[in-house]
Nucleic acid binder design. Structure first.
Lengths: 334, 334
DNA sequence: TTGTATGCGTTATCAC
DNA sequence: GTGATAACGCATACAA
């Protein structure tokens, strides 16, 4: 038999309401009474029934993480931060993987309703889906988006991808590189265009050209990076001396393509990545990349939902980033 | 205002019990009645209140995944499979990361109680913690362990690590390698000893020596692989011609150490890994490794909990594995 | 085949 | 500062 609040009340010699008060840190409880209750709860190994609490209090103490990201380490970071924040506040995190198609389907609203959570965290690239965001608003489900820039009226936790890309590009330019290749991510991904913006801006500011022949596109996979690398490097004397691939997997692909073509890194070619996933430390030379505080962002997103269930919708948490310099970038060959 | 089962009942012109029957696929409902109810539910975008359902039915329709694994892709696989299975059955998956220390702490029982779930999936290395397993049994929480071999009386979903290690070792032996180095994982990890067993058995069967000098130990990290690689390769003429590192990260480390020391892979040295994580395809040459059906195992674990809430404790699901042969292994140098 | 009444374990509304 | 008691929305005996 499960021990209930009634058992605790009996053991402590008080009413259930008082027990409830103590458990929920409500005011107006004598210190002595509080102690009695805490003691009784401890002895009985009491654990409140969440279903009952949810039913009575009309809160589920659950948050959902909606994601559709093939990058395990990114998701793991987000999850870790969000779970940690949830735990501190007595919440639990439920997983809700969702394809782009499902997010745009007409029945998302019902799917979201069925979740039965108090709020949801939407991670990229789904955080850019207007229809999903609209459905969330429609259903009246509190939500926060993790994105690369503030999104309209949706509470957002973001890191400035454009600024980060700008920084990486400047890093390369500072090392004397003028012919810099760029490997973009898929257009469907919101971060892609932001990163491209940052790159172009830095190049323009430095008076450097951005010819189409040095712009390649990938899909954030290693293989697409290999292909992009081969293409960019097959231009004879006019080849780039540095390539900025907008995620680590693609950057690793570029490095593989470069090595295969006989280029030494960083002596013949510098390569920059984005995300600072584990692979960045596992390839040789180590990959210079952009480190995002993913974990913190996950935690911030959860806290937003927990602390302000009905956000005013106008605020946004901004996070910084770090340029992790490793061996893959160096001076331009002379 | 949320729409409740009462609203649906009114809209359909039936009683709530009938609605309940339809929603839960219970028998004894006229087809016409069923249709009416389904229609009403659809129109009202009805989503059952999970808290109420949980309270009344004394089931939470939630499963928890307990894990403490630094390998994101392993966890992601497990999660993916488990979530998919849960979704098919109307369950949700909540995350419960837990350190080894927390799992062994005296208050785990209370932590587990507070989870408020119908069952938990315990992944390695926690699945080897007797105290955690005992606490689970104590609390009366249905659970299944994901492990490298059946565990006592605990329902287990497992893959034979020893057999897999044996296969990898045979693969190397078949290529003419006799001096094979081995990089073990931490002793605290249950899979470590199993993998060592498989290695030793294969070597012994082939009449090959297993000198201590060719046995190194790591902690499943890339860096520890680098260290182990350096050590194993610093033996002059007696160096191994192949090294079997028992996870991909360490194998990647060994490859880095080998390259650094001037050995070509696979011409001078063959390297085998374990797990088939993304890194295996992202390093050059590609890493020959053991691919586990992680996703399927996660799904199986969830299904066990859902289909047989009170398992009889004696059964276990066994899964196979694949040897993914890539470029890192080849004939022994002559 | 369908409907009525009771209870699940909390929180919340009042009165004391 | 504390305690009865009514919801909360659903499942489930039990009736009809």
């Amino acid at each position: 038999m499960k021990t209930t609040i009634t058992d605790v009340a009996r053991q402590a010699g008080v009413s259930i309401k008082t027990v409830s008060r103590v458990l929920n840190d409500e005011p107006n409880v004598a210190e002595a009474t509080r102690a009695k209750v805490v003691k009784a709860a401890g002895e009985l190994q009491y654990a409140p029934n969440l279903a009952a609490r949810g039913l009575a209090g009309s809160r589920s103490y659950m948050l959902a993480l909606i994601y559709d990201n093939p990058n395990p380490s990114y998701i793991a970071g987000l999850q870790g931060g969000a779970v940690a924040a949830c735990r501190r506040k007595g919440y639990r995190l439920v997983l809700e993987p969702m394809t782009q198609a499902a997010a745009e389907a007409p029945d998302v609203a019902l799917t979201l309703r069925r979740l039965g959570v108090d709020g949801v965290i939407v991670s990229p690239p789904l955080s850019a889906s207007d229809s999903l965001l609209a459905a969330l608003a429609d259903v009246g489900l509190p939500h926060v988006a993790i994105a690369s820039s503030p999104i309209g009226s949706v509470p957002t936790v973001h890191m400035d991808d454009a600024e980060a890309a700008h920084r990486m590009t400047c890093h390369l330019i500072d090392h004397g590189h003028g012919a810099i290749g760029f490997v973009a991510g898929p257009d469907s991904h919101p971060a892609s265009s932001r990163r491209r913006e940052g790159f172009v801006r830095a190049m323009t500011e430095a008076g450097l050209a951005v010819p189409a022949v040095r712009m390649a596109q990938g899909d954030f996979t290693f293989d697409s990076g290999v292909r992009a690398g081969r293409t960019l490097l097959s231009q004879g004397g006019d080849r780039p001396t540095a390539i900025f691939a907008t995620n680590d997997d693609m950057a690793a692909g570029v490095m593989a393509a470069a090595t295969e073509a006989g280029f030494a890194i960083p002596d013949d070619l510098s390569v920059g990545g984005f995300d600072d996933t584990p692979i960045a430390r596992m390839i040789r030379p180590g990959l210079t990349t952009i480190a995002q505080p993913i974990r913190d962002m996950g935690a911030a997103a959860a806290m937003r939902l927990i602390a302000r269930p009905v956000g005013d919708g106008s605020d946004a948490d901004a996070f910084g980033f770090d340029l992790a310099v490793r061996g893959s970038t160096g001076p331009a060959p002379t």
